[in-house]
Design a protein around this nucleic acid. Structure first.
Lengths: 346, 346
DNA sequence: TTGTAGGCGTTATCAG
DNA sequence: CTGATAACGCCTACAA
């Protein structure tokens, strides 16, 4: 049996300090209705007796939980490929920590179980707010949460995907523009891209942004979609490099694919960045662990997590939040990108 | 306000189905004391009304929470470097999912806050059990938990570190033996190692095992400690390779350092694996994302997480658990290791 | 088999 | 400013 061995209740404290239980409650919650003298006394006695409020009882009476829920619905191996999620959780957790909030986490095997969990959390009141991650287009979670306006929620996605729910959008469009014009300035006229799965909302958003940016600068743009794994990155890279005229620069949606792509390109005889420039989306330790170091579009993910936490707490407090922005991307130029090569037939 | 908009209580269900609240409770909990007919009726009505038990009330009455607590006390950037933690959590979560348990997660900035959180969780009864990770030598958490035998706990560490607390140990010793003899069989006579921080329990355990294994095979062994980052890996590698006679193979405690080490070694003019063999502890996507692919000692971390979850649930059920083992390591031979080079002066 | 009443530990209301 | 007393929603003896 999970033991609540905490036999010490406010009644014990009340008895020991010679006041009533409600006086104790007031004193311990810093509320008016009790003199300073008794407050001090109660506090001291509670301390001595080692009293701590029972969480369940507190939740029941206050009808709040001091918990924020996150459901992760990706396979374990994909989660571990994406440092993004861990950093986001770390940021979220660090900020929540300051407010004595916890993170309630569940791992769902599919969208159905994810929906079941969310439904359950909402119905049983297990969390004070929800953070939605990895949104897809026409996401069922959005529909569910719209039916429960009483449940504070923040969606980490573009507002176009959140259906009016408070959303925290990443500045992908802006970043795409930066990335493409950076390569364009280096003389690249043909840019390839290996994006994440098309069903992911942010992949789609980036797709559109890339198309537009390339068109605007008159750059030829080719895009393939892969699954974030090295294997996917390798295959897409091979394909991109085998069709003439090949791109002189490739941008990957995550660093794992970029690493793998850079590897296979070199195996195929391309020098990086002499013959081919490589860029990745999102920075991680890998990017500087490999030679040449990867040029990336990075951002402060931990900071975004913290910000998300603050917004969730605001939402819980009843404040109005509509759309906010994640920390902006910045171009971290390293050794994997360089001037475009002069190719035969140009 | 976080809303428990769930106005539907068992009383409502009772009224609607024309029975008493206790009958409803019995019916919904599959307990005897109610006829099949009324049970069916109650179930149907509850379904129709969309009734779900209030979590806090249930916790209060049953004095359990259906939650397992984990405190992560590393910096965000270190957490994201270690796919280990995410995989462990994913395994843990996946198994808990089947039993309708959740993971309660907190991120502590230091050992003190970690202790505070654990104390709080124990006193307030916020979790049914605890998982302790990243144990250090003479860990304060062990002392705390020993004072609270009523709180089920599992420590992910060698039993020598858990002070009698139920522990799940990794088979590092065995794996170290495999790794060293593998390299020895390839002709390597001088093996270097870049370990993790010395304060981490498992680093120390591996240190000892490596020393012993090397001595037994008559292999010269040099070890440096770093902080799991590329920078640390690079510096340690430089040092190892600059002191003659240099090692012909280096084993790293994580893949990030191995990657970085391999990179700098190649920059320094060593061919991998021609001149230098590289091996890493723990597998991840990175290992097959670089060329040459990294030879590693891998294991089923997700499986270990699942196993840990089952053990925790057993502990909650009052079963006795002392020491169990994580999934064993297996040697995943890839392209970064090869026969030892013939060095001048041999 | 069913209903009644009390308890879980806190918070909040309302007289004194 | 204090101290009973009633929620909060569910579980479970105990009685009917």
């Amino acid at each position: 049996m999970a033991g609540q061995k905490n036999k010490v209740t406010i009644f014990d404290v009340a008895k020991a300090s010679g006041v009533s239980s409600s006086a104790v409650s007031y004193a311990l919650n810093d509320k008016p209705g009790v003199s300073e003298a008794t407050r001090a006394k109660v506090l001291k006695v509670a301390q001595q007796l080692g009293w701590k409020p029972n969480g369940a009882a507190q939740s029941l009476a206050r009808s709040n939980t001091s918990r924020i829920g996150v459901v992760l619905a990706r396979e374990a191996h994909l989660l571990s490929v994406e440092p993004y999620m861990m950093e986001l959780l770390a940021g979220l957790g660090a900020e929540l920590e300051q407010h004595d909030y916890s993170l309630l986490l569940r791992f769902a095997v599919g969208r159905d179980t994810e929906m079941a969990i969310l439904n359950d959390w909402i119905a049983t009141g297990s969390v004070d707010a929800l953070l939605l991650v990895n949104l897809e287009m026409n996401d069922r979670r959005v529909a569910l949460l719209k039916k429960h306006p009483e449940m504070p929620v923040l969606a980490m996605c573009d507002p176009s995907l959140s259906g009016g729910l408070p959303a925290m959008r990443s500045l992908d469009m802006q970043a795409v523009g930066k990335a493409v014009s950076y390569l364009h300035d280096l003389g690249h006229q043909r840019i390839g891209r290996v994006g994440g799965p098309e069903s992911f909302g942010h992949s789609y958003i980036r797709d559109a942004a890339f198309c537009d940016a390339a068109t605007e600068l008159g750059v030829r743009y080719r895009c393939l979609h892969a699954d974030y794994t090295p294997k996917g990155g390798i295959e897409a890279t091979k394909l991109l490099l085998s069709v003439e005229p090949r791109p002189t620069a490739i941008i990957y949606d995550n660093d794992v694919m970029a690493l793998a792509g850079m590897g296979i390109a070199r195996e195929m005889g391309f020098d990086v960045p002499q013959d081919l420039s490589i860029m990745a989306w999102d920075d991680s330790f890998m990017c500087t662990a490999v030679f040449p170091h990867l040029t990336v579009m990075g951002r402060d993910i931990v900071g975004s997590g913290r910000k998300a936490a603050r917004l969730l707490l605001d939402l819980i407090d009843g404040k109005q939040v509509t759309v906010v922005e994640e920390s902006p991307y910045d171009l971290r130029e390293r050794a994997s990108t360089g001037p475009a090569p002069i190719l035969a037939g140009e």
